[in-house]
Simulated scan of single mutants.
Amino acid sequence: MDLQNKVAVVTGGASGLGQAAVRALVAKGAKAVIFDLNAEAGAAMVAELGSDKVFAAQVNVTDEASVQSGLDQAMEAFGDLHIIVNCAGIGPPAKVIDREGQPLPLDSFKKIVDINLNGTFNVLRLAAAKMQHNQPVNDDQGRGVIINVASVAAFDGQIGQPAYAASKAGIVGMTLPIARELARYGIRVNTIAPGLFMTPLAASLPEAAIESLGKSVEYPKRLGNPEEFAHLVVCMAENDYFNGETVRLDGSIRMAAR
């Protein structure tokens, strides 16, 4: 897919990995629509990159009406929808049994799964319903691409990550069946499973902690740069033979139990 003048929606696009994806897609000539609850950060991205290239909508990915409204705004702003990048997510640690011997509240587990897994599916399903009507953009009758974001926790979940790991494993698990289903419409579906990246949360840690985390990576011995994540997003969007895959982007790390 030639990204020039294609339209991408990036959830969680006002910060971290999503923000890097927005910048990389715009640099390739695409137009980007940011879905983020942080309206101020979204507006800052529009001011930085230009309203002719970026539009920001305050969207709650778990709410059907909110997502539908955001997609309608995207279509109104730029007239099309070709790419979805599902970056929105949360991951607060919480053990099944806490230090006082109390079980993890079910609502806490549900909240993480709702945002990470159900939110991803909510955006995916509503976007695919619009993408199916696109005019083909290439000789393969391609109409769009959906890129979800899981985590290495889907495979190497650590102690304290039962909800987070389950939600990300769910994203991995639905990648192939959805790719198979949407193939008839020329819509590709892939997933990126990032390892340790220098997101704003990681950057807030003490320097010694960042260095220690970097040493746990096989090679290169550092945290990943958001631009490296964004590079893979662009590759998945551009390469029409990239479909139905989950790719770990993690410097070959395998997470320890804790």
Rank of each mutant, 00 (worst) to 15 (best):
A41I: 00
Q102G: 07
Q73Y: 03
G144L: 11
P200H: 12
P162L: 13
E211R: 04
K110M: 02
A44K: 05
A27G: 08
E181Q: 13
A77I: 04
G251M: 01
V145F: 15
L213A: 07
P194H: 00
L124P: 10
Y164L: 09
K31I: 01
A165L: 11
Q132S: 09
L106M: 11
L249F: 03
Q58K: 14
C235S: 13
P92A: 03
G13V: 10
I112H: 10
S51E: 15
A41G: 01
H133V: 10
S252L: 06
R188D: 02
V247C: 03
S69Q: 12
Q141M: 14
A47T: 12
V85R: 15
F109Q: 03
S212P: 00
E211T: 09
P162A: 13
V33N: 03
L205P: 00
T120H: 04
A8L: 07
Q135G: 01
N38I: 02
V10T: 14
A88C: 07
L223S: 03
R23P: 01
P93S: 11
E76G: 04
N86Q: 06
D250I: 03
Y164V: 00
E227S: 13
P200C: 10
G16P: 14
I97T: 10
S108D: 15
F242W: 11
G214T: 01
I84L: 15
D107I: 05
A153S: 14
T11G: 14
G214N: 01
L25C: 09
D139L: 10
D72Q: 15
G18Q: 06
S66G: 08
K6V: 08
G13K: 03
I34V: 14
L37Q: 00
A202T: 05
K168I: 12
P105Y: 03
P177F: 14
V96E: 09
I159M: 15
P105N: 07
P220N: 10
G244Q: 08
M198F: 02
P177Y: 08
A166M: 12
Y164M: 10
G157Y: 08
F242G: 02
S15E: 14
A153V: 04
N148C: 10
G101E: 06
V152P: 01
A27E: 13
N225G: 00
I97A: 09
A257E: 12
A8S: 06
N190S: 13
I171E: 04
G29R: 14
Q158T: 09
A32V: 12
N122I: 05
L126I: 04
T191E: 03
D156L: 06
E211P: 01
S51V: 07
V152R: 01
H82I: 12
A88D: 09
G186R: 06
C235H: 11
A128R: 04
F242Q: 02
G13A: 06
A88E: 12
P226M: 04
A129W: 07
S66V: 01
M198L: 14
S151H: 05
L201K: 08
A208P: 00
R188I: 05
K28R: 14
I90A: 06
C87L: 03
N116I: 06
G224P: 12
